[in-house]
Simulated scan of single mutants.
Amino acid sequence: MSKQLPGHVDNPVMEHRDSIDIDAPPSKVWGMVTALDRYGEWSSENTGGYWRKGPDGEPGTGQVGDMFVGINRRDGEEWKAPVEIIRRVDNEDFAFVTGGLEYNIVLWRYQLAPKGDGTTLTETWTLRKHSPRMVEHGQGEVDQRAHNARTSIRATLEAMKAAAEA
């Protein structure tokens, strides 16, 4: 199966990835990774969110093409970020892109690999292109978003580990 994801860009602006070993099977970790509405329990920036309704009027469930609106808060500022699920390989690979494929701004990807009786979870943040806010505010905004991503990824991984092992 191809590792190239929808909306792939040859030269992303920047990327950061981090991994953690979790003493829980991939199926348990997978249940957390795909529960976007629960990310507020683990993330230092995301406070939760909701699934958007599809053409059939039903809210998404995390399948490819489903849309989710994440609610984020940092440094006293709150904003919403729509994301589209672009990859789902159960118990292995889950990815979504901020702005959906229409805007294709940031790719968030979670990859799970069995490690003994546990799981290695890798989270990747790939800035595919500058958002309108980054264009307006320049490199300082880009640097701040990259810093936020690095700290948020580490916090999310550690919190997911603690929850999965509890």
Rank of each mutant, 00 (worst) to 15 (best):
A35G: 04
P59E: 05
D143C: 01
H16D: 11
I105T: 09
A164S: 11
I71G: 02
G65L: 06
E102C: 00
A113H: 11
D90N: 10
T151G: 10
N11A: 13
Y103N: 14
E102K: 15
V9L: 05
S27P: 01
L157R: 03
E78T: 15
D90Y: 09
G70S: 14
D10P: 04
T61K: 15
G65T: 04
N72C: 09
G116T: 04
L157Y: 09
N148Q: 11
P26E: 07
R73Q: 13
P25M: 11
N11C: 03
M160I: 12
L5C: 02
I71P: 02
R73W: 01
Q144R: 13
S44L: 03
L5M: 08
R133W: 12
A166P: 00
S2D: 12
Q4V: 12
G100C: 08
T61Y: 07
V64P: 07
G76R: 07
V142E: 10
V106C: 06
A159S: 15
D10T: 08
V142K: 02
R38H: 13
R17K: 15
L121C: 04
E123N: 05
S19T: 11
G76Q: 08
T122Q: 09
T47N: 04
D117K: 14
G70D: 08
T156W: 10
R145N: 12
D75T: 00
T151A: 10
E165I: 02
I20F: 11
R74M: 12
R52Y: 05
V106E: 07
H8N: 09
Q4F: 04
M160E: 05
E136N: 05
K28Q: 13
G54M: 07
D117T: 12
G99S: 06
W30C: 05
A81H: 08
Y50C: 02
A159G: 06
G118V: 06
K129R: 15
D143T: 01
T98M: 13
E136A: 13
M134C: 00
Y103S: 12
V64W: 05
T124I: 13
N11R: 13
N72V: 02
T119D: 04
M1C: 06
E158Y: 01
A95D: 03
G65N: 12
H130A: 10
L5G: 00
S131V: 01
N91A: 09
I22H: 11
W125T: 03
E45M: 14
I105G: 03
G60N: 07
D93Y: 08
W42Y: 15
Q139Y: 00
E45T: 15
V13I: 14
V29Q: 08
R150T: 07
V69G: 01
H130Y: 12
E58H: 11
M1Y: 11
R133E: 14
K161H: 03
Y110I: 00
L101D: 12
T151N: 14
Y50F: 14
T124S: 13
G54I: 09
G118Q: 05
D18Q: 15
E158D: 10
V83P: 04
V97N: 03
H8K: 09
A159L: 02
D56K: 09
M32W: 03
A35C: 01
G31K: 09
V142P: 00
V33P: 02
P12T: 01
G99D: 06
H8D: 12
V33C: 08
I22C: 06
G49P: 01
V13E: 07
A95I: 00
S27C: 09
